[in-house]
Amino acid sequence: MATVTATEPTLTEHTAPSPDPSYIQVKNFSFWYGSSQVIHDQTFSMPKQKVTAFIGPSGCGKSTLLRCFNRMNDLIDGIHHEGDITVGGESIFNPMLEVISLRKRVGMVFQKYNPFPKSIYENIVYSLRVAGRNKKSELDEVVERSLRNAALWDEVKDRLQDSALGLSGGQMQRLCIARAIANQPEILLMDEPCSALDPVATGKIEELIHQLKRQFTIVIVTHNMQQAARVSDRTAFFYLGKLIEYDETQKIFMNPEKPQTEDYVSGRFG
């Protein structure tokens, strides 16, 4: 079942050319947890200011790959990799590169909304504060801009100092998006951002992704194929750690080349 229900503006967005079609490049990349290989020799590139969706059944390595882009896997014991990933031509595994500065360039939204037990305001400005930016006027400006970008401003503008934990699930996830974009990263990684949300909240997040891709390069992992079809420009299908097919979203869903892709997108397995 692959139906693309894109709205009019989205279609025009789809057609807009990317300023850098190979902004993120994955080159012969393999990845191991201990002795088990979860990513097998993948090579592909993702365009700037577009939405790329990673789809595939559970355990196919799509989340692991996503977490390589900001090196969140570093926290795990016994990992190693081969090959390289570059962002804007620069290797993210360069030992001279500070992982902190990489993470400032590559923001991330997690599967489960995870606001800090602080106020809404403090959640948003966290990335600025850790960077040593504490000027009140600047922070205020960032909070408003980020919340407006995350389409949350009107809902929370009167209670910025309230605890973020008082928000609903959908609001919290949008808060996490606002928090991730507060420091203006270049890339926004989204690891199944809607899996814990109800359909109404999901709709709002998807709308938001459409807004955000004007500014950010977005990589989204999703289990929901309709969602991939709705929000992404390009889609990569992974299976058992291998990249099976990577193409324009329309093509993947309408006319996939590989039979496995067709089986998956049409719901025959997964």
């Binding site: 900001n70 969140m72 902190i100 997690f110 995870n114 800090f116 966290y126 850790v130 991730a180 420091n183």
Partner: peptide, 25 residues
């Protein structure tokens, strides 16, 4: 919870900043 420390690290906080601003409170 790991999701809090991950959130902090993903936002560009150092290990010490994560420890002092998220873990300790």
């Amino acid at each position: 919870p790991q999701f809090l420390t991950s959130a902090s690290l993903a936002l560009g906080a150092s290990r010490w900043q994560t420890a002092s601003r998220v873990v300790l409170p």
